[in-house]
Nucleic acid binder design. Sequence first.
DNA 1: TTTCGCATGTAAGCTGTTACATGATTCC
DNA 2: GGAATCATGTAACAGCTTACATGCGAAA
Lengths: 196, 196
Amino acid sequence: MCAMNRLNKTQYALLGLLSQEPMSGYDIKKTLKASTQHFWQESDGQIYPALAQLLKEKLITCTVDQSQGARIRKVYQITAKGLKTLKNWLIKAAEPPVPRNELLLKLFFGLHTPSEINLKHVLDHQQQLISRLKTYQEITKMLTHEKSPHLSYWKITLNYGKKITQAQLDWCEETLKTLKTLTLAHPLEFKKGKKY
Amino acid sequence: MCAMNRLNKTQYALLGLLSQEPMSGYDIKKTLKASTQHFWQESDGQIYPALAQLLKEKLITCTVDQSQGARIRKVYQITAKGLKTLKNWLIKAAEPPVPRNELLLKLFFGLHTPSEINLKHVLDHQQQLISRLKTYQEITKMLTHEKSPHLSYWKITLNYGKKITQAQLDWCEETLKTLKTLTLAHPLEFKKGKKY
DNA sequence: TTTCGCATGTAAGCTGTTACATGATTCC
DNA sequence: GGAATCATGTAACAGCTTACATGCGAAA
């Protein structure tokens, strides 16, 4: 009777967010950006169709809020069936991500690239990591005032971000040194038109 | 005249591998598995179509090798145009990956999950990381005999893998401790049917 | 008055995965 | 004889990104 087609990851993610509190599609966008953006992203075009599908499967309900003037705001709420579906997914082992790190791929082939460009790639990455660490510091501060029962779990994911970012920064420093010694070892490599 | 449609990432990755040495599609599969699998993966169905496209664009050439009996082996080689295209891509900034870490997503919603299952998720991950570190140790050993001019760049990506994996292991240990204290704090949370 | 944030949604196109299809050779 | 590895490829489907379309309200 209950056909229960398996949901996609986007739908589980939204179900999870709605399990923490009722929200509109727009709220979901913002929440994703503010709280899970460092380990889980959704692109804009995914959210509304996913919500529509969840509604069709009765995993969430929708109430229209018109309190603020003429703007239509659809607030979604998880159902008992939705919570059950979510919990059933949460206990299953997570699929490991498919690694696709373009920076590493480019460095892997770095012999074909002028050294100053390889350096620039790493330097740029370093800057991104530094600003990411700052974001984590800000989130850490905000969480000190937070009373949600989810707090401990949020801290676990935040801690992951901090630790991995710090490790990446360490790698950047080491790699910058290595790249500099490579430049010294073959200073005219490209100007000579030497081939490998 | 030269239309030069932009290539996709798979095509650049293959071009990069072929810039290191001529290979067949099957060799590419194996090389990806053996050397870039921790930062770059391709699924099976991608390789042959990508190769066909590169051939059409004259970025690679193909010679058929029938030396070993009746088996057909197509060996691909990068062309001057292909190398130019590759280098042009290598100097452009890498696009940051879209983060999608299912383990973290599940832990983020971990309040809905029995503590022993959250623990198991992390424990499983820890085991995967340990065996990954072993793989890196083996690769490190193999590289000591390697004379390729690409060696320094290979080491840079390997070093990334080691450092990040170690950081993830540190996080696992810390998280296991945290999850255990959470279990102590709310030992009967789920049996009581308490809701959040 | 123009820009920004709120708010919902669609569609085309690209990317990626899985399963399938085929068949030879080598090793146990 | 059967399994694993070598070797090439296709097709259906699932997933994801980007750009577009619409329009209100508030602030600058």
